[in-house]
Design a protein around this nucleic acid. Structure first.
Lengths: 229, 229
DNA sequence: GGAGTGAAGACTGTATACAGTCGACGGAAA
DNA sequence: TTTCCGTCGACTGTATACAGTCTTCACTCC
Protein backbone atom coordinates (compact mmCIF):
# COMPACT_ATOMS: atom_id res chain seq x y z
CA UNK A 1 0.00 0.00 0.00
CA UNK A 2 1.41 3.36 -0.96
CA UNK A 3 2.15 5.80 1.80
CA UNK A 4 -0.69 8.18 2.13
CA UNK A 5 -0.19 11.74 3.15
CA UNK A 6 -2.89 14.18 3.98
CA UNK A 7 -2.64 15.77 0.57
CA UNK A 8 -3.67 12.48 -1.00
CA UNK A 9 -7.00 12.55 0.75
CA UNK A 10 -8.95 14.49 -1.81
CA UNK A 11 -12.74 14.57 -1.92
CA UNK A 12 -12.62 12.72 -5.20
CA UNK A 13 -10.94 9.70 -3.64
CA UNK A 14 -12.89 6.81 -5.15
CA UNK A 15 -13.84 3.28 -4.18
CA UNK A 16 -13.98 3.84 -0.46
CA UNK A 17 -17.48 3.03 0.60
CA UNK A 18 -18.25 4.33 4.07
CA UNK A 19 -17.57 2.04 7.00
CA UNK A 20 -20.75 0.29 7.96
CA UNK A 21 -21.04 0.42 11.68
CA UNK A 22 -23.54 -1.98 13.07
CA UNK A 23 -24.96 -1.09 16.40
CA UNK A 24 -25.05 -3.60 19.21
CA UNK A 25 -28.80 -3.69 18.81
CA UNK A 26 -28.48 -4.70 15.17
CA UNK A 27 -25.91 -7.32 16.03
CA UNK A 28 -28.12 -8.67 18.78
CA UNK A 29 -31.11 -8.77 16.43
CA UNK A 30 -29.18 -10.75 13.84
CA UNK A 31 -27.82 -13.12 16.46
CA UNK A 32 -31.18 -13.84 18.06
CA UNK A 33 -32.87 -14.18 14.70
CA UNK A 34 -30.33 -16.73 13.60
CA UNK A 35 -30.71 -18.62 16.84
CA UNK A 36 -34.46 -18.87 16.38
CA UNK A 37 -34.38 -19.75 12.68
CA UNK A 38 -31.74 -22.39 13.25
CA UNK A 39 -33.72 -23.95 16.07
CA UNK A 40 -30.96 -23.20 18.56
CA UNK A 41 -33.63 -21.40 20.57
CA UNK A 42 -36.57 -23.75 20.95
CA UNK A 43 -40.13 -22.74 20.22
CA UNK A 44 -41.75 -21.25 23.28
CA UNK A 45 -38.46 -20.65 25.03
CA UNK A 46 -38.43 -17.69 27.37
CA UNK A 47 -36.24 -14.79 26.32
CA UNK A 48 -35.45 -12.85 29.48
CA UNK A 49 -33.65 -9.62 28.76
CA UNK A 50 -31.17 -10.07 31.56
CA UNK A 51 -30.18 -13.55 30.47
CA UNK A 52 -29.74 -12.60 26.82
CA UNK A 53 -27.79 -9.51 27.81
CA UNK A 54 -25.46 -11.65 29.84
CA UNK A 55 -24.96 -14.20 27.07
CA UNK A 56 -24.31 -11.58 24.42
CA UNK A 57 -22.22 -9.48 26.80
CA UNK A 58 -24.16 -6.28 26.34
CA UNK A 59 -26.61 -4.33 28.44
CA UNK A 60 -30.36 -4.79 28.38
CA UNK A 61 -30.91 -1.77 26.16
CA UNK A 62 -29.78 -3.27 22.84
CA UNK A 63 -31.52 -6.51 23.78
CA UNK A 64 -34.82 -4.71 24.27
CA UNK A 65 -34.48 -3.15 20.85
CA UNK A 66 -33.68 -6.49 19.30
CA UNK A 67 -36.67 -8.19 20.89
CA UNK A 68 -39.02 -5.48 19.69
CA UNK A 69 -37.63 -5.83 16.18
CA UNK A 70 -38.05 -9.59 16.33
CA UNK A 71 -41.65 -9.18 17.38
CA UNK A 72 -42.23 -7.10 14.26
CA UNK A 73 -40.68 -9.91 12.24
CA UNK A 74 -43.04 -12.37 13.83
CA UNK A 75 -40.45 -14.58 15.50
CA UNK A 76 -40.97 -13.34 19.04
CA UNK A 77 -44.14 -12.64 20.97
CA UNK A 78 -44.75 -10.75 24.19
CA UNK A 79 -47.17 -11.67 26.92
CA UNK A 80 -49.25 -9.19 28.87
CA UNK A 81 -46.45 -8.57 31.30
CA UNK A 82 -43.90 -7.75 28.66
CA UNK A 83 -42.01 -11.01 28.80
CA UNK A 84 -40.94 -12.36 25.45
CA UNK A 85 -40.83 -15.89 24.12
CA UNK A 86 -39.94 -17.60 20.88
CA UNK A 87 -43.18 -17.63 18.95
CA UNK A 88 -44.97 -20.91 18.48
CA UNK A 89 -46.36 -21.41 14.98
CA UNK A 90 -49.46 -23.41 14.24
CA UNK A 91 -50.47 -25.08 11.03
CA UNK A 92 -52.87 -22.21 10.45
CA UNK A 93 -50.07 -19.70 10.94
CA UNK A 94 -48.22 -21.38 8.14
CA UNK A 95 -51.17 -21.22 5.79
CA UNK A 96 -51.64 -17.54 6.58
CA UNK A 97 -47.97 -16.87 6.06
CA UNK A 98 -48.13 -18.59 2.72
CA UNK A 99 -51.17 -16.68 1.51
CA UNK A 100 -49.64 -13.41 2.62
CA UNK A 101 -46.45 -14.23 0.79
CA UNK A 102 -48.43 -15.09 -2.28
CA UNK A 103 -50.26 -11.77 -2.28
CA UNK A 104 -47.10 -9.75 -1.80
CA UNK A 105 -45.02 -11.61 -4.33
CA UNK A 106 -47.69 -11.43 -6.99
CA UNK A 107 -47.83 -7.70 -6.50
CA UNK A 108 -44.05 -7.60 -6.72
CA UNK A 109 -44.06 -9.63 -9.91
CA UNK A 110 -46.40 -7.22 -11.65
CA UNK A 111 -44.33 -4.25 -10.58
CA UNK A 112 -41.14 -5.99 -11.59
CA UNK A 113 -42.48 -6.60 -15.06
CA UNK A 114 -43.07 -2.88 -15.41
CA UNK A 115 -39.99 -1.48 -13.76
CA UNK A 116 -37.11 -3.92 -14.05
CA UNK A 117 -33.79 -2.76 -15.38
CA UNK A 118 -31.09 -4.66 -17.17
CA UNK A 119 -29.00 -4.50 -14.02
CA UNK A 120 -31.79 -6.11 -12.02
CA UNK A 121 -31.97 -9.03 -14.41
CA UNK A 122 -28.22 -9.49 -14.43
CA UNK A 123 -28.09 -9.52 -10.67
CA UNK A 124 -30.83 -12.11 -10.49
CA UNK A 125 -29.14 -14.28 -13.08
CA UNK A 126 -25.95 -14.15 -11.08
CA UNK A 127 -27.88 -15.17 -7.99
CA UNK A 128 -29.28 -18.19 -9.77
CA UNK A 129 -25.76 -19.19 -10.78
CA UNK A 130 -24.83 -18.92 -7.15
CA UNK A 131 -27.66 -21.25 -6.23
CA UNK A 132 -26.51 -23.72 -8.86
CA UNK A 133 -23.11 -23.89 -7.19
CA UNK A 134 -24.53 -24.61 -3.75
CA UNK A 135 -24.68 -27.99 -2.10
CA UNK A 136 -25.45 -26.87 1.41
CA UNK A 137 -29.19 -27.01 1.98
CA UNK A 138 -29.30 -24.26 4.58
CA UNK A 139 -27.32 -21.98 2.33
CA UNK A 140 -29.61 -22.79 -0.58
CA UNK A 141 -32.72 -21.87 1.36
CA UNK A 142 -31.19 -18.55 2.33
CA UNK A 143 -30.28 -17.90 -1.29
CA UNK A 144 -33.79 -18.84 -2.31
CA UNK A 145 -35.32 -16.27 0.00
CA UNK A 146 -32.69 -13.72 -1.02
CA UNK A 147 -33.61 -14.24 -4.67
CA UNK A 148 -37.24 -13.45 -4.02
CA UNK A 149 -36.28 -10.50 -1.88
CA UNK A 150 -34.22 -9.15 -4.75
CA UNK A 151 -37.25 -9.26 -6.99
CA UNK A 152 -39.18 -7.31 -4.38
CA UNK A 153 -36.41 -4.75 -4.14
CA UNK A 154 -36.44 -4.41 -7.91
CA UNK A 155 -40.16 -3.67 -7.71
CA UNK A 156 -39.08 -0.42 -6.07
CA UNK A 157 -42.16 -0.12 -3.95
CA UNK A 158 -41.47 1.03 -0.43
CA UNK A 159 -44.62 -0.10 1.39
CA UNK A 160 -44.34 -3.47 -0.29
CA UNK A 161 -40.77 -3.86 0.93
CA UNK A 162 -41.86 -2.96 4.45
CA UNK A 163 -44.63 -5.55 4.38
CA UNK A 164 -42.22 -8.14 3.05
CA UNK A 165 -39.91 -7.52 5.97
CA UNK A 166 -42.69 -8.53 8.34
CA UNK A 167 -42.82 -12.05 6.90
CA UNK A 168 -39.35 -12.68 5.56
CA UNK A 169 -37.85 -14.12 8.72
CA UNK A 170 -40.83 -16.36 9.21
CA UNK A 171 -40.34 -17.79 5.73
CA UNK A 172 -36.72 -18.47 6.53
CA UNK A 173 -37.83 -20.16 9.70
CA UNK A 174 -40.20 -22.49 7.88
CA UNK A 175 -37.64 -23.38 5.26
CA UNK A 176 -34.99 -24.13 7.84
CA UNK A 177 -37.50 -26.16 9.81
CA UNK A 178 -38.38 -28.21 6.77
CA UNK A 179 -34.75 -28.88 6.07
CA UNK A 180 -34.13 -30.03 9.60
CA UNK A 181 -37.12 -32.32 9.42
CA UNK A 182 -36.08 -34.15 6.28
CA UNK A 183 -32.64 -33.17 5.17
CA UNK A 184 -32.28 -36.34 3.14
CA UNK A 185 -35.30 -35.97 0.89
CA UNK A 186 -34.24 -32.60 -0.36
CA UNK A 187 -30.78 -33.29 -1.57
CA UNK A 188 -32.16 -32.78 -5.04
CA UNK A 189 -33.67 -29.44 -4.20
CA UNK A 190 -31.03 -27.59 -6.23
CA UNK A 191 -32.41 -29.33 -9.29
CA UNK A 192 -35.83 -28.08 -8.34
CA UNK A 193 -34.98 -24.54 -7.30
CA UNK A 194 -32.62 -23.48 -10.04
CA UNK A 195 -34.73 -24.32 -13.12
CA UNK A 196 -37.78 -22.93 -11.38
CA UNK A 197 -36.04 -19.64 -10.77
CA UNK A 198 -34.72 -19.49 -14.33
CA UNK A 199 -38.16 -19.98 -15.74
CA UNK A 200 -39.66 -17.47 -13.34
CA UNK A 201 -37.10 -14.85 -14.25
CA UNK A 202 -37.64 -15.42 -17.95
CA UNK A 203 -41.40 -14.99 -17.56
CA UNK A 204 -41.01 -11.89 -15.43
CA UNK A 205 -38.89 -10.34 -18.15
CA UNK A 206 -41.49 -10.63 -20.88
CA UNK A 207 -42.92 -7.32 -19.82
CA UNK A 208 -46.47 -8.58 -19.44
CA UNK A 209 -47.96 -8.05 -16.03
CA UNK A 210 -50.43 -10.86 -16.47
CA UNK A 211 -47.71 -13.31 -17.48
CA UNK A 212 -45.57 -12.17 -14.58
CA UNK A 213 -48.42 -12.78 -12.19
CA UNK A 214 -49.18 -16.27 -13.39
CA UNK A 215 -45.50 -17.18 -13.37
CA UNK A 216 -45.19 -16.05 -9.78
CA UNK A 217 -48.33 -17.91 -8.79
CA UNK A 218 -46.80 -21.03 -10.24
CA UNK A 219 -43.60 -20.46 -8.27
CA UNK A 220 -45.61 -19.96 -5.10
CA UNK A 221 -47.63 -23.11 -5.68
CA UNK A 222 -44.43 -25.07 -6.24
CA UNK A 223 -42.98 -23.75 -3.02
CA UNK A 224 -46.16 -24.59 -1.15
CA UNK A 225 -46.22 -28.16 -2.38
CA UNK A 226 -42.56 -28.69 -1.79
CA UNK A 227 -42.70 -27.52 1.79
CA UNK A 228 -44.04 -30.13 4.18
CA UNK A 229 -46.62 -29.01 6.68
CA UNK B 1 -71.85 1.23 44.87
CA UNK B 2 -72.31 -1.51 47.43
CA UNK B 3 -69.64 -1.94 50.06
CA UNK B 4 -67.25 -4.64 49.05
CA UNK B 5 -65.57 -6.89 51.53
CA UNK B 6 -62.82 -9.32 50.78
CA UNK B 7 -65.20 -12.22 50.81
CA UNK B 8 -67.00 -10.69 47.87
CA UNK B 9 -63.91 -10.92 45.70
CA UNK B 10 -64.48 -14.33 44.21
CA UNK B 11 -62.86 -15.46 40.97
CA UNK B 12 -66.28 -15.44 39.37
CA UNK B 13 -66.71 -11.71 39.97
CA UNK B 14 -68.05 -10.51 36.64
CA UNK B 15 -67.88 -7.36 34.58
CA UNK B 16 -64.52 -6.21 35.83
CA UNK B 17 -62.29 -6.16 32.82
CA UNK B 18 -58.64 -5.93 33.80
CA UNK B 19 -57.19 -2.48 34.14
CA UNK B 20 -55.45 -1.61 30.93
CA UNK B 21 -52.19 -0.08 31.84
CA UNK B 22 -50.60 1.80 29.06
CA UNK B 23 -46.89 2.16 29.29
CA UNK B 24 -45.25 5.52 28.91
CA UNK B 25 -43.86 4.29 25.62
CA UNK B 26 -47.35 3.56 24.31
CA UNK B 27 -48.61 6.90 25.50
CA UNK B 28 -45.69 8.64 23.87
CA UNK B 29 -46.29 6.77 20.63
CA UNK B 30 -49.92 7.79 20.53
CA UNK B 31 -49.07 11.36 21.36
CA UNK B 32 -46.38 11.72 18.73
CA UNK B 33 -48.48 9.96 16.13
CA UNK B 34 -51.36 12.33 16.74
CA UNK B 35 -49.04 15.32 16.55
CA UNK B 36 -47.74 14.19 13.16
CA UNK B 37 -51.11 13.26 11.70
CA UNK B 38 -52.65 16.50 12.84
CA UNK B 39 -49.82 18.51 11.35
CA UNK B 40 -48.82 19.86 14.74
CA UNK B 41 -45.38 18.49 13.98
CA UNK B 42 -44.37 19.76 10.56
CA UNK B 43 -43.03 17.55 7.82
CA UNK B 44 -39.28 17.25 8.09
CA UNK B 45 -39.19 18.50 11.66
CA UNK B 46 -36.37 17.11 13.77
CA UNK B 47 -37.42 14.84 16.60
CA UNK B 48 -34.58 14.91 19.11
CA UNK B 49 -35.07 12.40 21.89
CA UNK B 50 -34.02 14.83 24.57
CA UNK B 51 -36.43 17.51 23.48
CA UNK B 52 -39.40 15.17 23.18
CA UNK B 53 -38.57 13.60 26.53
CA UNK B 54 -38.60 17.02 28.11
CA UNK B 55 -41.90 18.02 26.49
CA UNK B 56 -43.64 14.79 27.46
CA UNK B 57 -42.01 14.76 30.88
CA UNK B 58 -40.54 11.30 30.59
CA UNK B 59 -37.05 9.94 30.08
CA UNK B 60 -35.49 9.17 26.73
CA UNK B 61 -36.18 5.45 26.99
CA UNK B 62 -39.94 5.51 26.23
CA UNK B 63 -39.29 8.14 23.57
CA UNK B 64 -36.82 5.88 21.79
CA UNK B 65 -39.35 3.09 21.75
CA UNK B 66 -42.01 5.42 20.43
CA UNK B 67 -39.79 6.69 17.63
CA UNK B 68 -38.89 3.17 16.55
CA UNK B 69 -42.57 2.26 16.48
CA UNK B 70 -43.36 5.35 14.45
CA UNK B 71 -40.68 4.42 11.95
CA UNK B 72 -42.38 1.08 11.47
CA UNK B 73 -45.62 2.94 10.85
CA UNK B 74 -43.91 5.06 8.23
CA UNK B 75 -44.40 8.44 9.88
CA UNK B 76 -40.83 8.89 11.11
CA UNK B 77 -37.56 8.26 9.38
CA UNK B 78 -34.02 7.97 10.71
CA UNK B 79 -30.89 9.29 9.11
CA UNK B 80 -27.54 7.51 9.12
CA UNK B 81 -26.66 8.93 12.48
CA UNK B 82 -29.83 7.76 14.16
CA UNK B 83 -31.54 11.11 14.28
CA UNK B 84 -35.23 11.02 13.53
CA UNK B 85 -37.42 13.42 11.61
CA UNK B 86 -41.04 13.61 10.56
CA UNK B 87 -41.13 11.79 7.27
CA UNK B 88 -41.64 13.78 4.11
CA UNK B 89 -44.03 12.19 1.64
CA UNK B 90 -43.78 12.62 -2.07
CA UNK B 91 -46.46 12.23 -4.68
CA UNK B 92 -44.96 8.86 -5.52
CA UNK B 93 -45.14 7.82 -1.87
CA UNK B 94 -48.83 8.48 -1.99
CA UNK B 95 -49.34 6.38 -5.10
CA UNK B 96 -47.40 3.54 -3.53
CA UNK B 97 -49.37 3.81 -0.34
CA UNK B 98 -52.57 3.67 -2.30
CA UNK B 99 -51.59 0.61 -4.32
CA UNK B 100 -50.43 -1.18 -1.18
CA UNK B 101 -53.69 -0.41 0.53
CA UNK B 102 -55.57 -1.66 -2.47
CA UNK B 103 -53.73 -4.98 -2.45
CA UNK B 104 -54.23 -5.53 1.25
CA UNK B 105 -57.86 -4.52 1.34
CA UNK B 106 -58.77 -6.68 -1.63
CA UNK B 107 -57.19 -9.61 0.13
CA UNK B 108 -59.13 -8.71 3.25
CA UNK B 109 -62.38 -8.46 1.31
CA UNK B 110 -62.01 -11.97 -0.06
CA UNK B 111 -61.23 -13.36 3.37
CA UNK B 112 -64.09 -11.44 4.89
CA UNK B 113 -66.53 -12.90 2.41
CA UNK B 114 -65.45 -16.35 3.52
CA UNK B 115 -65.13 -15.86 7.25
CA UNK B 116 -67.44 -13.10 8.42
CA UNK B 117 -69.78 -13.74 11.31
CA UNK B 118 -73.09 -12.18 12.13
CA UNK B 119 -71.43 -10.24 14.93
CA UNK B 120 -68.91 -8.79 12.47
CA UNK B 121 -71.66 -7.49 10.23
CA UNK B 122 -73.58 -6.01 13.13
CA UNK B 123 -70.53 -4.23 14.41
CA UNK B 124 -69.82 -2.78 10.98
CA UNK B 125 -73.42 -1.65 10.58
CA UNK B 126 -73.23 0.11 13.91
CA UNK B 127 -70.04 1.80 12.81
CA UNK B 128 -71.74 3.11 9.69
CA UNK B 129 -74.53 4.51 11.84
CA UNK B 130 -71.87 6.24 13.89
CA UNK B 131 -70.44 7.79 10.72
CA UNK B 132 -73.88 8.97 9.72
CA UNK B 133 -74.15 10.89 12.97
CA UNK B 134 -70.84 12.65 12.52
CA UNK B 135 -70.37 16.19 11.36
CA UNK B 136 -66.76 16.66 12.32
CA UNK B 137 -64.55 15.94 9.34
CA UNK B 138 -61.54 14.79 11.31
CA UNK B 139 -63.68 12.41 13.33
CA UNK B 140 -65.25 11.09 10.14
CA UNK B 141 -61.91 10.31 8.59
CA UNK B 142 -60.86 8.41 11.69
CA UNK B 143 -64.12 6.47 11.63
CA UNK B 144 -63.58 5.76 7.96
CA UNK B 145 -60.19 4.22 8.60
CA UNK B 146 -61.54 2.38 11.64
CA UNK B 147 -64.29 0.87 9.50
CA UNK B 148 -61.81 -0.55 7.05
CA UNK B 149 -59.62 -1.75 9.88
CA UNK B 150 -62.57 -3.60 11.32
CA UNK B 151 -63.04 -5.43 8.04
CA UNK B 152 -59.41 -6.43 8.16
CA UNK B 153 -59.75 -7.66 11.71
CA UNK B 154 -62.78 -9.66 10.68
CA UNK B 155 -60.66 -11.30 7.98
CA UNK B 156 -58.84 -12.96 10.89
CA UNK B 157 -55.52 -13.13 9.12
CA UNK B 158 -52.59 -12.27 11.33
CA UNK B 159 -49.92 -11.41 8.74
CA UNK B 160 -52.45 -9.28 6.91
CA UNK B 161 -53.23 -7.34 10.07
CA UNK B 162 -49.51 -6.80 10.66
CA UNK B 163 -49.02 -5.47 7.13
CA UNK B 164 -52.02 -3.19 7.53
CA UNK B 165 -50.51 -1.71 10.66
CA UNK B 166 -47.51 -0.59 8.61
CA UNK B 167 -49.68 1.65 6.43
CA UNK B 168 -52.63 2.57 8.63
CA UNK B 169 -51.12 5.68 10.19
CA UNK B 170 -49.97 6.93 6.81
CA UNK B 171 -53.50 6.65 5.50
CA UNK B 172 -54.76 8.66 8.43
CA UNK B 173 -52.07 11.21 7.71
CA UNK B 174 -53.16 11.63 4.11
CA UNK B 175 -56.81 11.92 5.02
CA UNK B 176 -56.14 14.51 7.67
CA UNK B 177 -53.91 16.38 5.28
CA UNK B 178 -56.61 16.44 2.64
CA UNK B 179 -59.10 17.75 5.14
CA UNK B 180 -56.80 20.51 6.21
CA UNK B 181 -56.19 21.46 2.61
CA UNK B 182 -59.83 21.85 1.63
CA UNK B 183 -62.10 21.51 4.59
CA UNK B 184 -64.87 23.39 2.81
CA UNK B 185 -65.21 21.16 -0.22
CA UNK B 186 -65.74 18.06 1.84
CA UNK B 187 -68.59 19.10 4.02
CA UNK B 188 -70.68 16.68 2.04
CA UNK B 189 -68.29 13.81 2.60
CA UNK B 190 -70.68 12.12 4.98
CA UNK B 191 -73.09 11.77 2.10
CA UNK B 192 -70.32 10.15 0.13
CA UNK B 193 -68.82 7.89 2.78
CA UNK B 194 -71.91 6.43 4.39
CA UNK B 195 -73.73 5.13 1.30
CA UNK B 196 -70.44 3.85 -0.05
CA UNK B 197 -69.81 1.88 3.09
CA UNK B 198 -73.34 0.52 3.14
CA UNK B 199 -73.02 -0.72 -0.38
CA UNK B 200 -69.59 -2.16 0.29
CA UNK B 201 -70.80 -4.03 3.34
CA UNK B 202 -73.79 -5.41 1.48
CA UNK B 203 -71.57 -6.68 -1.32
CA UNK B 204 -69.06 -8.20 1.09
CA UNK B 205 -71.90 -10.12 2.71
CA UNK B 206 -73.01 -11.89 -0.44
CA UNK B 207 -70.49 -14.62 0.24
CA UNK B 208 -68.86 -14.42 -3.17
CA UNK B 209 -65.16 -13.73 -3.10
CA UNK B 210 -65.20 -12.29 -6.60
CA UNK B 211 -68.04 -9.92 -5.76
CA UNK B 212 -66.31 -8.90 -2.55
CA UNK B 213 -63.14 -8.14 -4.47
CA UNK B 214 -64.80 -5.98 -7.09
CA UNK B 215 -66.79 -4.12 -4.44
CA UNK B 216 -63.63 -3.35 -2.53
CA UNK B 217 -61.85 -2.24 -5.70
CA UNK B 218 -64.68 0.16 -6.33
CA UNK B 219 -64.39 1.51 -2.81
CA UNK B 220 -60.65 1.97 -3.25
CA UNK B 221 -61.11 3.75 -6.56
CA UNK B 222 -63.64 6.08 -4.98
CA UNK B 223 -61.27 6.86 -2.17
CA UNK B 224 -58.48 7.48 -4.64
CA UNK B 225 -60.48 9.90 -6.71
CA UNK B 226 -61.89 11.67 -3.73
CA UNK B 227 -58.50 12.31 -2.21
CA UNK B 228 -56.66 15.21 -3.79
CA UNK B 229 -53.05 14.67 -4.64
C1' DG C 1 -56.00 -29.82 55.90
C1' DG C 2 -56.92 -25.59 53.57
C1' DA C 3 -57.12 -20.79 52.95
C1' DG C 4 -55.02 -16.62 53.78
C1' DT C 5 -50.47 -14.10 54.34
C1' DG C 6 -46.05 -12.29 53.95
C1' DA C 7 -41.34 -12.32 52.42
C1' DA C 8 -38.01 -13.46 48.56
C1' DG C 9 -36.79 -13.69 43.84
C1' DA C 10 -37.26 -12.77 38.93
C1' DC C 11 -38.22 -9.65 35.62
C1' DT C 12 -39.71 -5.58 33.21
C1' DG C 13 -40.44 -0.40 32.80
C1' DT C 14 -38.23 3.79 33.48
C1' DA C 15 -34.67 7.05 34.85
C1' DT C 16 -30.11 8.55 34.94
C1' DA C 17 -25.20 8.49 33.80
C1' DC C 18 -21.47 8.06 30.65
C1' DA C 19 -18.99 7.85 26.19
C1' DG C 20 -18.30 8.75 21.58
C1' DT C 21 -19.45 11.09 17.14
C1' DC C 22 -20.58 14.71 14.17
C1' DG C 23 -21.34 19.45 12.75
C1' DA C 24 -20.82 24.39 13.56
C1' DC C 25 -18.08 28.02 14.53
C1' DG C 26 -14.15 30.71 15.17
C1' DG C 27 -9.35 31.60 15.10
C1' DA C 28 -4.76 31.03 13.13
C1' DA C 29 -1.67 30.23 9.29
C1' DA C 30 -0.57 30.47 4.32
C1' DT D 1 -9.14 35.70 1.62
C1' DT D 2 -9.00 30.94 2.07
C1' DT D 3 -7.95 26.86 4.33
C1' DC D 4 -6.88 24.17 8.09
C1' DC D 5 -7.53 22.96 12.79
C1' DG D 6 -9.32 22.72 17.29
C1' DT D 7 -12.94 23.48 20.54
C1' DC D 8 -17.68 23.37 21.88
C1' DG D 9 -22.33 21.92 21.85
C1' DA D 10 -25.94 18.74 20.52
C1' DC D 11 -27.26 14.29 20.14
C1' DT D 12 -27.34 9.30 20.01
C1' DG D 13 -25.82 4.54 21.68
C1' DT D 14 -25.00 2.03 25.65
C1' DA D 15 -24.57 0.97 30.51
C1' DT D 16 -26.13 1.11 35.03
C1' DA D 17 -29.37 2.11 38.74
C1' DC D 18 -33.88 2.17 40.70
C1' DA D 19 -38.82 1.08 41.34
C1' DG D 20 -42.76 -1.59 40.96
C1' DT D 21 -45.24 -5.94 39.82
C1' DC D 22 -46.14 -10.69 39.74
C1' DT D 23 -45.06 -15.45 41.21
C1' DT D 24 -43.69 -18.66 44.36
C1' DC D 25 -43.46 -20.85 48.46
C1' DA D 26 -43.26 -21.60 53.03
C1' DC D 27 -45.80 -20.57 57.11
C1' DT D 28 -49.55 -19.51 60.17
C1' DC D 29 -54.10 -19.52 61.70
C1' DC D 30 -58.66 -21.32 61.47
Amino acid sequence: MPPRTKSNLTPSQPHLSPLSRFSLAEDATARIRRAIVSGELAVGAALPETGLAEQLAVSRVPIREALMAMEQEGLVEFDQRGRSRVRAFSEEDFEELFSMRCTLEVMAARLFAKRMTKADVETLEAMIDGQQATQNLTALSLLDVAFHERIIQAARHRPLAVCWKTIRSQIEYWLARAHRAQADRHLSSVDLTVPGHRRLLADLCRGSEAKAESAMRLEMATWREWLPA
